[in-house]
Design a protein around this nucleic acid. Structure first.
Lengths: 227, 227
DNA sequence: ACGTCCGATTGACCGCAATCAATGCACAAA
DNA sequence: TTTGTGCATTGATTGCGGTCAATCGGACGT
């Protein structure tokens, strides 16, 4: 099942393409860390393209915790769903770092879409990426066992980097706490899983939530890509 | 959080609208139960609009099981993602009943989209619905506890029906086994949860995987919509 | 009516991950 | 240096849900 391995390979430069088309209509804005951009259920809001920083998309859970759905970084564009189907935001957005972003209002996007019909197609492609990411999330959450979840997550991080060389170094796109939530685990279980992977000699702990992948094959195997 | 309650309310007649526009280009096709329409990773495929029957969308898991993502029924249209972003299907599709459906090939959809640019917008709205559904799935899978998952699932089924009257009757859109997979549980745990809800006097068991909701408020509370 | 088959339900058991709690560690402020 | 603070890691414990297995019950065919 080699398909699975490159399922999420990025198309480099794509985000830049649409950002370039829309650039004249964007307004550069700075957000503090921990700033709520919008909450689920709200209709008013903004379309965002991150320049620097990190934003997490999440749903609050009944027990007061949060389920992280995406963690977006530089180059990612999002927040346009309410603009195209008129429904409220399906999830909340919060900066997890100080973030510099390009922002567009609802009205401006509508006028742009009338002038440039191609924009609709570009948004379609973006939505498609979001849907694929959500499917990956569903698969991870449905998988039993800590190691498969973590291994799959680290594996997809490594292919996002795209380095094929041995001893790839990856950094979590967020704090261990946030990332554990994205993987569907408590921070403690995530840490234990990392420890086990390290004991197996598959990865090596580095500073600042970074890891070195010593044995990509074993990592893929733990992730379940063995069949 | 009343927003949450109607987050998935359907827009009746919408599916009919786009189906009507595309109708001349569809080919009516019959599929046996258990027929694989496509597998994840494949690029070639078809866009499908169900007339009668049921189709499940799923990802195979490392342990050989499956994670159900959607269960589609009459009026639902899907399978167009590869046509708009050129990437392979992100999940597999299989009929779980004998199904009669309207089918369109990739090339035909492309030509239609050139003649009718509006179709792109309609597909955008459809994609949006898919994304919202995936988010709901992620929230359910992230929620701890059997009762919240089942209660949330039954609750959203009841609001799909739209009946506000007391003693709403809902039927699972699929077998208990399939539906449990959609909720993220084993069939056994699902059954136990249903039993507990029945013992609490919140629902009442009927024939054929149907249930009567005796106490909608308690159901919503168990689902976590109490705040 | 009887037997077969398949799915749903219930029972018994236990492994695993969440929970609660403590310790370690890096970094910033005093 | 010392103190404080936030996060990551490790330890000890328990409860929940998965697994395996048995039973039940309806649909269907002969």
């Amino acid at each position: 099942m080699k398909d699975k391995l490159k399922r999420n390979s990025r198309k480099p430069g794509f985000g830049d393409e649409i950002t370039h088309v829309l650039e004249p209509y964007f307004v550069k804005t700075r957000f503090n860390a921990g700033r709520i951009l919008w909450r689920e259920g709200e209709s008013a809001g903004k379309m965002v393209s991150i320049v620097t920083g990190k934003v997490k998309i999440f749903r609050p859970l009944p027990d007061g915790k949060q389920a992280a759905i995406y963690i977006f970084g530089p180059g990612d564009m999002f927040g346009f769903l309410p603009f195209i189907d008129g429904s409220p935001y399906p999830a909340s957005a919060e900066t997890i770092e100080e973030t510099l972003a390009l922002v567009m209002t609802r009205e401006k996007l509508r006028t742009v879409m009338k002038q440039h019909p191609d924009v609709a197609f570009l948004l379609l492609e973006h939505l498609g990426k979001r849907l694929r990411g959500a499917f990956d999330q569903i698969e991870r959450l449905s998988t039993r066992g800590v190691l498969p979840k973590i291994a799959a997550a680290l594996h997809s991080l490594s292919i996002d980097i795209g380095q094929r060389a041995p001893s790839v170094i990856i950094s979590l796109p967020a704090s261990s706490r946030e990332y554990a939530s994205l993987v569907g685990l408590t921070p403690e279980s995530f840490s234990r899983g990392i420890t086990r992977l390290a004991d197996m000699g598959i990865i090596h702990r580095l500073q600042n939530n970074s890891y070195q992948i010593l044995n990509p094959e074993s990592l893929a195997q733990e992730a379940g890509y063995h069949v």
